[in-house]
Every structure is written in structure tokens, then in C-alpha cells.
């Protein structure tokens, strides 16, 4: 199972590859898109500049640096919809990316996927984004039929469910997202606007709540479940426990979330996944052993135990309960 890391600048490439990354993915917004739609509507689902490669020259340098170590670079073009009148320009843009050495694009727009399939690239992979919400094997088949050469599964699946899908997927490589950036909502079905320059997203806000129903107020269990994600920090999202089992199941690549994050955070994430994978290969652990080891690695990485709201794979057992929330509803503090 390959380790797929986010990258934003050429200078990060050697560090990430030395840390253990084997594939890289980046974002770049072509001028024809940003001139039309402005800064918030990105073609790669990140509305802040740090999460996209700054220029074509920087993209070339990044691809060259990766090519020196034979690491493929994929480009996220995962916004949808791509307007019909813009499609020829988008395909032309992808042709240019392929010429520069990009080895694949990540798409979530069905018309774009079809257009790229029909363009018959010789050496460009078409990755169907998790934004297609593939929860089952039939969805993988649908996407393969539409031209996908790799499918990135929905984040909410268990290791057992993933294993069954991989077994049914034949030669279609399956990618799983497993570290950092776990959204409390199903990303493919979330239509919230992520426009806050402070990067507090709508699912992380603290809301005032009013109960409409029998009884005096919001029932306690519902309130606790809803408040679990308010004020949480997705930097701590973790699926380390699952790494050995995902590899054993035949998952092709494990993706780390984090375009736009500081370089040190990306590197530490890659190192953690590599360490867990190495341990898994040597120890051939069972589920319980994976859970224990994953939690130890999390503690080493973050200096505190993991928590349920940060967990990609809850079947490995709950982390520590979250501390009681403080403060009024509204924005959370401390976001860079």
C-alpha cells in the first residue's frame, strides 16, 4: 500500500519522499477558472492560496523534483460542476498538465470524467474522488465504466467494508483516506460554503440550539452527539490503527489530507503512516494489536490521547472522551 501525501511547493518534495511518501498530490487553479469564479470557488475545493501551487513554474519544479525519485504527482481538479462551456478549456488544461508530467488528475465531476475518458490520454490516470461518495462496490463499477482508473472511497467505511469492496474491484486500484482532515459530514454530500479566511468551517461552528419536539429541551444524547464536533480540530483526525489491515486487504494507496498545511505537519503525518505500515509488515498484527499500537503512535505524535471525534475507523475502539466544551456558541479559538 502506497503512501500518498499532499504537497504544495517544490521544496517540500524531497522531504516528503524521504519521510516515506511514494505518491504526491497537489492543487493548482488555472487563471481561466479564478478569473471567472473568484477566490472562494476553487476548482480544487480549497479556497485559500496556501493549498494550491503558486504558479506554473512552481508546478513544473515540483513535478521535476518528484520525477527525480520516480514519484507520481496527481493534481486535484475535484470541484463540481465544471460548466459545460468551460469543458473544452478544462480538457485542454489537463492535456497541458499531462505534457508537464502530471501522472493523474482527481475529479469529482461526472461530465469532466467522461470528457477526459473520451480524450483517450495514453498515460494519465483518472482518479474518481471521494466526492462521488462511493460507499459500495457497484459505485466503483459505475465509476470505472465512466472512465475512472482509480477510485477513492467514502471516508465513512469500515476496514471490513473496504476489504470487501477491494476484493470485488478487480484491477481497479482503490484508495482510502486515512489521516488528518476527517469531516464530520459525508464530504460528497456536503454543500456548505467554506469561505472563512480563518478556516473555521460550518461543521465546526458552535450553534445555538432549540428543540422542536416533546420534552423541555434538546435531549442530552442528541446534544452531546451534535456538540462532539463543534470546536474540534481536524488536524487530529487519525486512522493509524487501520493501516496494517488496509494494506493486508489490498488497498492501493492511503491518502493523507493536508494541502495547505505546514510542511512539518505533512512530514510528521507521512512518518507516522510509514512507521505504522512498517510495524504492521513485521508484526502481522490482529485488530486489537493494531488498536493499541495506533493509539501509542497517536500519543507520540500529538502528545495527547486520541478522541472519538477524530477517529476514521471507530471499530478500533473509542479514544478518550472529549473534554467539556467551554465558551459560547460561535467561532473556535486558536485557528491560525
Amino acid at each position: 500500500m502506497r503512501i500518498l501525501s499532499p504537497v504544495d511547493r517544490a521544496a517540500e518534495v524531497p522531504v516528503l519522499l524521504s519521510a516515506g511518501a511514494e505518491e504526491l498530490y497537489a492543487g493548482y487553479v488555472p487563471p481561466f477558472w479564478s478569473e471567472r469564479f473568484g477566490p472562494v470557488v476553487s476548482c480544487n475545493r480549497r479556497s485559500y492560496a496556501e493549498a494550491s501551487v503558486a504558479s506554473p513554474e512552481e508546478l513544473d519544479a515540483l513535478i521535476r523534483a518528484a520525477a527525480l525519485r520516480d514519484a507520481p504527482v496527481y493534481l486535484a481538479l475535484n470541484a463540481s460542476p465544471v460548466p459545460e462551456e468551460m469543458m473544452p478549456r478544462m480538457v485542454e488544461f489537463v492535456v497541458d498538465l499531462a505534457r508537464r508530467g502530471v501522472r493523474g488528475v482527481i475529479v469529482s465531476d461526472l461530465p469532466l470524467l467522461l470528457a477526459l475518458r473520451d480524450a483517450k490520454f495514453l498515460r494519465l490516470d483518472l482518479h474518481a474522488s471521494t466526492l462521488f461518495s462511493p460507499f459500495n462496490g457497484a459505485a466503483v463499477a459505475f465509476l470505472r465504466r465512466a472512465g475512472a482508473t482509480r477510485v477513492i472511497l467514502a471516508r465513512e467505511l469500515s476496514t471490513a467494508e473496504i476489504g470487501r469492496i477491494v476484493a470485488e474491484s478487480g484491477r481497479t486500484p482503490i484508495e482510502v483516506i486515512g489521516l488528518r482532515g476527517r469531516c464530520p459530514n459525508i464530504e460528497g454530500f456536503c454543500t456548505h460554503l467554506h469561505d472563512d479566511p480563518q478556516r473555521t468551517w460550518p461543521c465546526e461552528l458552535r450553534y445555538e440550539k432549540e428543540w422542536i419536539g416533546p420534552g423541555a429541551g434538546v435531549p442530552r444524547e442528541i446534544l452531546l452527539a451534535m456538540e462532539r464536533y463543534e470546536g474540534s480540530d481536524r488536524h487530529y483526525s487519525c486512522g493509524l490503527c487501520a493501516v496494517p489491515l488496509l494494506e493486508r486487504a489490498g488497498v492501493h494507496a492511503l491518502k493523507i489530507v493536508g494541502r495547505g498545511a505546514e510542511s512539518e505537519r505533512k512530514t510528521s503525518a507521512v512518518e507516522a503512516v510509514r512507521a505504522m505500515r512498517k510495524w504492521g509488515r513485521e508484526a502481522a498484527p490482529d485488530t486489537a494489536e493494531c488498536a493499541r499500537r495506533g493509539k501509542v503512535l497517536f500519543q507520540e505524535m500529538h502528545g495527547r490521547p486520541c478522541r472519538p471525534e477524530n477517529c476514521y475507523f471507530p471499530e478500533f475502539g473509542p479514544g478518550e472522551p472529549s473534554p467539556a466544551r467551554e465558551g459560547p456558541p460561535g467561532r473556535k479559538k486558536g485557528r491560525p
Binding site: R36, S80, P81, E84, P111, L193
Partner: peptide, 26 residues
């Protein structure tokens, strides 16, 4: 927020109402 965000351009706002039904190819 799409209706009230000051950071969206007119085209950016309008984009949010489009969808797969807008594509003849799809």
C-alpha cells in the same frame, strides 16, 4: 452562507446553483 457571503462574486454565487442537470453530456 452562499446567499450572504461577501467573498463570492456574482459568477461564483451562481455557480453554486448549477449541477449535473446543466450538462448535456451528463
Amino acid at each position: 452562507r452562499i446567499g450572504i457571503s461577501s467573498r463570492l462574486t456574482a459568477d461564483g454565487r451562481s455557480w453554486h446553483g448549477e449541477g449535473i442537470f446543466s450538462s448535456g453530456r451528463a
